[in-house]
Design a protein around this nucleic acid. Structure first.
Lengths: 201, 201
DNA sequence: GCCCTAACTGGCCGGCCGGTCAATAAGCTG
DNA sequence: CAGCTTATTGACCGGCCGGCCAGTTAGGGC
C-alpha cells in the first residue's frame, strides 16, 4: 500500500488497475490473484479497485472484455488487409496468426484460462471472424484453388488451434527430443497444411 | 465434515482423497479448490488430508503424478500395439489418440492447468513416447511412405496438439458457424494431415 | 492381553481474504 | 467562494483459508 499515486483522473486510474490486473490474471489465473497484491502492483488502494470495478469478478470480466476486444479488432484488421482468396494468401494468413500469437503471449494464456472456466463468450466473439475466414476458404474452393471435400470452418479451426496450442503448451513440448524452433515448426506445419488443403493435380 | 467414513485402511483412504482431489482440481484448478470442500467430498477430515499428503501443494503434485503416470502407461500400451510403420498406422494412431482424449477429458484439463502453471514435468514425462513416435515416423520416411522433408517430431507434435486443443478449447469453437462434430472434424483433419504427410507421386 | 504404531478426530489458530464504510479531498459548476 | 460530485483513503469486518496439535482409537506383532 506504500508508494501510491493519486491522479484524480478516473479513466487513467481505471486503466492502471486494468493493466495491472491483466498482467496478474494472465500470469496466475483468477482465483490465485489476491486483491491486495493487485492493489500494490497498480499502486492504488484496494478500496479504489472496488470503487471502480465493484468486485474481483467484475474486474476479471472487464479485463477479459478489454483484451478480447483488442484481439478481435487486431484480427479484424488483419482480415481486411487480405486480398483475393488463394493458396498463397492462406499461407500468409497462417503465418500472420502464428506471429501474432508469438508476439502476444498474454492472449494465449487468457484464452486458456477462459477455456478452463468454460466461458464460451470469447468464442462467440469471433464467430464473425471465423465466418469471414470460412467464407474466404469457400470462395477459394469454388475457384478450385483449395480442395473441396473439406469443411471450410475446419480449415480455419485447424490452423487457429495449432498455432494456439503451440504457444499454450510450449512448456510441455519444448524439451521433446528433436523439437525445432517456432519458425521451424511453423515451416513444417505449413508444408503439411498447405499440401493437405490444395487439390491434387 | 458430516458423513465421514473410517476405513482404517490408509491405502484406501489415500485413494479416496486422491480421487476427490483429482476431480476438484481438474474442475476448478489448484488455487480455487478449498481443502474444506475437498475433505467433504472425500468424506474425510481436513486433518486426515494433511496427515497423508502433508500440504495442499504436495497433494496437487501427487494428483498430477498419478494422473500422468496413468496417461503415460496408457499411451505406452497403445504405442506397443502398433505394428510396422506406414501411413495407415499413422492414421489409426491419430484416431486412437483423438478418441483417447475424447474419453478422458480430465487429462486434457489437467494438462491445461499444468501448462498454465509452467510446469514442464508432464512434458518431460513423454519424451520417451514422443521419441518412439518420431523414430517410427522416421522409419516410414526412409521407406518412402511419408515425405522426408519434415521433422518427424513435428509430425507427432502436430497431431497431438491438434487433438488436445480440439477438446481443450471446445467451449470456444463449438459455437463457430459451420463447425462439425468431433468425428467430422477428425475426418477433415485426417484428410489434410494424411495428404500433407504422404509423398506426392 | 499389552503395547506400539499410525490412522484418525475435533478444535483451534494466525493470517489474510474480499469487501464495506465513513471521512477526506480534489475538481467542477455556478 | 459555496456546494456538489466523486475519486480516494485507511481503518475495519466477518469469514474462512491452510495448517497444527493434543488426543483418541483401532489394528498388528509379540
Amino acid at each position: 500500500m506504500t508508494n501510491r499515486i493519486q491522479t484524480r483522473d478516473p479513466e487513467l486510474t481505471r486503466v492502471r488497475i486494468l493493466d495491472a490486473a491483466e498482467a496478474l490474471f494472465i500470469e496466475q489465473g483468477f482465483s490465485a490473484v489476491k486483491l491486495s497484491a493487485l492493489a500494490r502492483s497498480a499502486e492504488v488502494t484496494k478500496s479504489l479497485i472496488h470503487h471502480h470495478f465493484g468486485s474481483k469478478e467484475q474486474l476479471w470480466e472487464a479485463v477479459k472484455d478489454r483484451a478480447f476486444e483488442r484481439y478481435f479488432t487486431a484480427q479484424m484488421a488483419m482480415l481486411e488487409e487480405a486480398g483475393e482468396p488463394d493458396a498463397a494468401l492462406l499461407r500468409s494468413s497462417v503465418e500472420a496468426y502464428f506471429h501474432f500469437l508469438r508476439d502476444n503471449p498474454g492472449v494465449v494464456r487468457l484464452f486458456a484460462w477462459t477455456h478452463l472456466e468454460g466461458d464460451s463468450h470469447c468464442g462467440e466473439l469471433d464467430n464473425q471472424l471465423v465466418g469471414a475466414g470460412a467464407e474466404w476458404v469457400r470462395q477459394a474452393q469454388q475457384r478450385g484453388l483449395l480442395r473441396q471435400d473439406i469443411n471450410p470452418t475446419h480449415v480455419i479451426a485447424l490452423f487457429v488451434m495449432t498455432c494456439t496450442q503451440w504457444f499454450e503448451a510450449k512448456c510441455h513440448h519444448q524439451h521433446w527430443p528433436g523439437m525445432g524452433t517456432d519458425e521451424a515448426f511453423l515451416e513444417d506445419f505449413l508444408k503439411i497444411f498447405m499440401e493437405g488443403v490444395t487439390p491434387r493435380d
